[in-house]
């Protein structure tokens, strides 16, 4: 009788052990991935000096100069209504004009936009309706023009801020 009891106990314990072993065959882990709103914009560098050196006799508008040596790249996942605005750190004096033209394959370029008087409080749109995703190495074009009546301009540095915003 005693041996039977012991045997039965062993069988039960063994069954429990087997169940326990099988219960650990799988393990689970909760993994969450959250993607927040991302805005990224960068430029390839600074353009070369824009120096007006010539003009035509009898014409107040001097010959403009251009630079297309730089580019910009963006990445955004916010929406399809994102835009790029541009402004200068300080407005140009009257008679000098700086135009900016940003190419875009994900949005609508506004073409050449006069940013001479665009400051932080009055930034102007240069690209609109940018779709979600990335747009790399899009050309930045600057055109600087001056009127003879504005006189000469000593070498001046201006900071152009391109803002990717909604």
């Amino acid at each position: 009788m005693k041996q039977i009891l012991i045997t039965l106990t062993l069988v039960v314990l063994s069954s429990i052990l087997i169940e326990t072993a099988f219960a650990q065959v799988t393990a689970t882990q909760s993994v969450s991935l959250t993607v927040n709103t991302v805005y990224k914009i960068a430029t390839s560098g600074n353009p070369g000096a824009l120096t007006v050196t010539t003009g035509s006799a009898g014409t107040d508008a001097l010959t403009s100069v251009s630079d297309n040596s730089t580019s910009y790249s963006i990445t955004q996942n916010f929406g399809n209504t994102v835009k790029i605005t541009a402004n200068l750190d300080a407005a140009l004096s009257a008679g000098y004009t700086l135009q900016l033209n940003l190419a875009s394959s994900k949005g609508t370029s506004a073409g050449s936009v006069d940013i001479s008087n665009a400051t932080s409080g009055s930034a102007v749109n240069v690209v609109t309706a940018i779709a979600k995703g990335a747009d790399a190495s899009q050309a930045i074009g600057y055109t600087f023009s001056a009127l003879a009546s504005a006189g000469t301009l000593a070498s001046t540095s201006k900071t152009v801020t391109l803002t990717l915003t909604n």
Binding site: Y39, K40, G45, N46, V160
Partner: peptide, 23 residues
Amino acid sequence: VRAQGVNTQQVITLQVVELNKIG
């Protein structure tokens, strides 16, 4: 506020030298 964008900057150098043209 968090959805506001980011910006990047370029420094441009502008200059107009003296020029005299007659024809």
